[in-house]
Amino acid sequence: MQYRKLGKTGWQVSVIGLGTWNIGGQWGEVDDRTALATVWRAYECGVNFFDTADAYGEPPGRSEELLGRALQGIRHEVFIATKVGNWARRHGHPLPYTSPLHIIVCCHASLYRLRTDYIDLYQCHIGNPTDAEIEVFLEAFERLKEQGKIRAYGISTNSVDALMRFNKHGTCATCQLDYSILNRAPERDLLPYCQENGIGVIVRGPLAMGVLSGKFTPDTVFTDDVRRSWNEGERRERFLRRLEIVERLRFLERDGRTMAQAALQFVLSHPAVSCAIPGAKSPQQAEANANAGDGALTEEELKAIDEIVQPGTVV
């Protein structure tokens, strides 16, 4: 496993982290034993950065609870990142986040579920917050830092405007963003801004919600809560277009490297990226993802990818 500095924090984090949205049940049923084993296998393979959110899981908070249970005994050896801003939104009961107290009470709840007395990285989970919301989040995050409840903070967004507004005081440590071979839009302005301002980049969606794993076919039917809408209409058409691109990328597969591992190594090839956080629903998936942190794509392979998906574009 390789390790890189995470922006202003100075922390050395594994280039492959573990995103724990998947273990909470929204991507299909995962029993507790499998969820805990998945986290542990990632750790055994060198992963030291674990990302979650208070909204992840069914019911919301389940992903945090499972991660907290799994990391008991090794908490001091890892970095925990969680997010705030989407609690109960999908159930129709979002918090207004009009006062720092809303964020502070959510932080206390996350600390309880994670079984820890501090969060390494606390992130705003509203992708395009208003100026008023930014003021509330920044005030809350600064209070929480002073109290020792969090160590650093950032935002999860694909909007460079939102990031710039959130970083107006130069205190934003990280940006979590959606980036993959199929979504190269961040290369236009978001990644350069992060690189110029010392903001650590955490890549979510490096496998494009599984499309870049290479395991799906035109006959695939999705049953999980997150991707069920891909079964018909425009989203189905886009899924099929993306599958065609994946077939053109099959040259990346070779002995000792899967399509998914190549996709992870692609996002890690950008110099602004600190860490990629693919999800996993089994110890085997966690191990395979972690193994991508031991290699890299060649310049020839990167040039070939550019011929299929042009830099700065989205499929």
Rank of each mutant, 00 (worst) to 15 (best):
Val203Asp: 09
Phe166Trp: 08
Glu244Trp: 14
Thr157Asp: 10
Arg204Phe: 11
Glu196Lys: 13
Phe239His: 00
Asn197Ala: 01
Arg236Pro: 01
Thr174His: 02
Ala173Lys: 12
Met209Lys: 04
Glu237Phe: 09
Gly170Ile: 10
Leu249Pro: 01
Arg242Gly: 05
Phe216Ile: 06
Arg241Ser: 14
Pro206Phe: 05
Gly198Val: 06
Gly214Gln: 02
Cys175Ala: 15
Gln195Ile: 10
Leu182Thr: 12
Arg238His: 13
Asn231Lys: 01
Phe222Ile: 05
Gly233Tyr: 13
Thr174Asp: 13
Arg228Lys: 06
Glu237Lys: 14
Tyr179Met: 06
Arg165Cys: 02
Asn197Phe: 03
Ile199Trp: 04
Val203Phe: 09
Arg236Tyr: 02
Ser213Gln: 12
Thr220Trp: 07
Asn167Met: 05
Val160Gln: 02
Phe239Asp: 00
Cys194Ala: 11
Lys215Glu: 10
Gly233Cys: 15
Val246Pro: 07
Phe222Val: 09
Asp219His: 15
Ile181Arg: 01
Leu163Cys: 06
Asp161Leu: 07
Val221Tyr: 00
His169Glu: 13
Glu187Asp: 10
Glu234Ser: 11
Pro206Cys: 06
Leu212Thr: 02
Gly214Phe: 03
Pro186Lys: 02
Ile202Cys: 09
Arg235Glu: 06
Lys168Pro: 10
Phe216Trp: 12
Ser180Phe: 03
Ser159Tyr: 06
Ile181His: 01
Leu249Gly: 02
Arg242Phe: 12
Asp161Cys: 15
Ala185Val: 09
Ile245Asp: 15
Val201Pro: 08
Asp178Thr: 15
Asn231Trp: 00
Tyr179Leu: 13
Asp189Gly: 12
Asn183Ile: 13
Ala173Glu: 09
Gly214His: 02
Val203Asn: 10
Asp219Ile: 08
Thr157Gln: 13
Asn231Val: 00
Asn183Arg: 08
Gln176Leu: 08
Ile199Lys: 02
Glu247Phe: 10
Thr223Met: 00
Val226Gln: 05
Glu247Lys: 08
Asn158Asp: 07
Asn183Ala: 12
Ile181Ala: 01
Leu240Ser: 11
Arg241Glu: 09
Gly233Trp: 10
Arg238Leu: 10
Met164Pro: 09
Ile199Val: 06
Glu247Ala: 08
Thr217Ser: 14
Asp178Ala: 05
Cys172Asn: 13
Pro218Phe: 04
Glu247Val: 12
Arg242Cys: 15
Asn183Cys: 12
Glu232Tyr: 12
Arg238Trp: 06
Leu190Asn: 01
Gln195Gly: 10
Gly198Trp: 03
Leu163Trp: 02
Arg227Ala: 02
Arg227Trp: 00
Ile202Gln: 05
Asp225Cys: 05
Val203Trp: 11
Tyr193Ala: 07
Trp230Met: 01
Pro186Arg: 01
Val203Pro: 07
Ile181Leu: 04
Leu249Ser: 03
Glu232Trp: 14
Phe166Ile: 13
Gly205Trp: 04
Asp224Arg: 08
Lys215Thr: 09
Val226Arg: 03
Met209Gly: 03
Gly200Asn: 07
Asn197Gln: 00
Phe166Lys: 11
His169Lys: 13
Arg238Thr: 14
Leu249Met: 13
Arg204Asp: 14
Asp219Pro: 05
Leu212Ala: 04
Asp224Pro: 05
Arg235Ser: 14
Asn158Arg: 12
Phe239Ala: 00
Glu244His: 09
Leu177Lys: 04
Pro218Gly: 04
Asn231Arg: 00
Val211Ala: 01
Pro206Asp: 04
Cys172Ser: 08
Gly200Gln: 09
Val160Tyr: 04
Leu212Asp: 03
Phe222Tyr: 11
Met164Cys: 07
Tyr193Val: 04
